[in-house]
């Protein structure tokens, strides 16, 4: 199986409450926050690795994993770390952050898919900065491919996948034939969430994503990383959603600490009138 994984870096999501909005509302200022891989995209990479291996021999790829990112030269860090984790090749589409939105990325990915011809495109279900949750769906429509979003489980079968999608009232299973687009949810990295045809159905992965051992980090420097230009892969792409201004969320007033259950019930009943 050949898998194309799209990766994005985001301002440290665990410190997202430290973003600042200047008084004129002109931007979301993430100064001081470290760049981190988008967590859902890390899960997508882990999923791609699990799908292209026998779980018992994770250093041997049964297939190919190509990772892609869109951004300025410093986003190559994201790609190098994906290569160290086990991806085979990387492509960076050179662009400034301002040039990129979901549709532009989807158009660019479409072009890359036409060249690379993967069986599967894997992405995280949403980037935790813009929180839009759209690239998989946009790309699937542009390619006229089937989509399975919010994947919590994936089982490979001949010529396709059975995907368990996390929906509002449970898990919805769909069967896809390649080529297809899948976006992954949180629980895709649970120990028994992903099985390739090569992996023993009794196999248990470690919880979460794998980390690159030091020698792999050294070797990753020699793996191929190709650069393309946004104008070549997404010519004429123009954002259709324009942000006029930004605001900080309303602040909740600091509450009070309550001594015991009786006092809490009194407050809820008589002050908040919530009971």
């Amino acid at each position: 199986m050949k898998v194309l994984v799209a990766l994005k870096r985001v301002a440290d999501p665990d410190n997202a409450n430290k973003v600042k909005i200047p008084a004129d509302g002109s931007k979301i200022d993430t100064t001081g926050l470290e760049w981190k891989p988008n967590p859902f995209d890390e899960y997508a990479l882990e999923t791609a690795l699990r799908l292209t291996e026998n779980g018992k021999t994770p250093k041997v790829r049964a297939g190919e994993v190509v990772v892609v990112t869109f951004g300025p030269p410093e986003t190559e860090t994201t790609l190098r770390s994906a290569l160290a984790t086990g991806a085979d090749r990387a492509i960076r589409v050179n662009a400034t952050d301002e040039q990129l939105d979901g549709m532009t990325v989807a158009l660019g990915l479409k072009k890359l898919v036409e060249t690379e011809q993967p069986d599967l495109v894997l992405v995280g279900k949403q980037a935790v900065d813009g929180d839009t949750n759209q690239v998989a769906q946009l790309l699937a429509e542009l390619l006229d491919w089937p989509q399975a979003t919010f994947a919590a489980t994936i089982r490979e079968e001949a010529g396709g996948l059975v995907v368990g999608r996390e929906v509002d009232d449970g898990v919805l299973s769909v069967r896809l034939k390649f080529p297809a687009v899948v976006s992954v949810d949180l629980r895709i990295v649970a120990p028994r969430s992903v099985f390739s045809l090569h992996t023993d159905p009794a196999h248990k992965y470690n919880e979460g994503v794998r980390f690159a051992p030091l020698p792999a980090i050294m070797q990753a420097r020699k793996k191929p990383l190709e650069t393309k230009q946004l104008a070549d892969v997404a010519p004429g792409a123009r954002a259709k959603v324009t942000y006029v201004s930004f605001e900080a969320p309303p602040k909740r007033k600091a509450g009070v600490k309550i001594a015991d259950v009786d006092a809490l019930l009194d407050k809820l009943k008589n002050e908040a009138k919530a009971l």
């Binding site: 997202a16 973003v19 979301i28 959603v241 324009t242 942000y243 930004f246 900080a248 969320p249």
Partner: peptide
């Protein structure tokens, strides 16, 4: 909402 609700964007669609 964006950034886990730590910012709000006001947008228009063209």
């Amino acid at each position: 909402p964006m950034f886990a609700g730590n910012a709000f964007g006001i947008c228009r669609i063209e």
